[in-house]
């Protein structure tokens, strides 16, 4: 590990996880029922509203749709906006303390 900062002023570089693995913030996780998911059923790019409305950009508009649970904060917008109810927010089962 390098222990000397050669910068003379604060100048950041980009990297994922600036706030850590933000998946830790979740109380509930999104679970996709692919049998209901439009692009999965149609086998072609379609719908992808979960991708469009994810504030974190952690949903991939692939078939099947994928969610990066390392960073998903569990806001639940995707489940709320899914027009066919394919995403359910499921308790992480974790308890404080």
């Amino acid at each position: 590990m390098e222990d000397k900062d050669h910068h003379i002023s604060a100048m950041c570089k980009p990297a994922p996880g600036e706030a850590g693995k933000t998946g830790d913030w979740r109380d509930v996780r999104p679970v996709i029922n692919h049998e209901k998911c439009t692009p999965f059923i149609k086998k072609k790019p379609s719908c992808f509203l979960c991708w469009l409305y994810c504030p974190e950009g952690v949903i991939r508009d692939t078939i099947p749709v994928q969610i990066d649970l390392d960073y998903c904060k569990g806001c639940g917008i995707c489940a709320e906006e899914c027009p066919v109810g394919a995403i359910t927010m499921v308790s992480e089962g974790k308890h404080d303390g």
Binding site: P14, A15, P16, G17, E18, A19, G20, K21, T22, W25, P55, E56, G57, V58, D68, D70, Y71, K73, G74, C75, G76, I77
Partner: peptide, 13 residues
């Protein structure tokens, strides 16, 4: 995506 995953913004921001 220009915003990398794991930002400090609140849930549902």
């Amino acid at each position: 995506e220009y915003i990398l995953p794991g930002s400090r913004a609140c849930q549902g921001c």
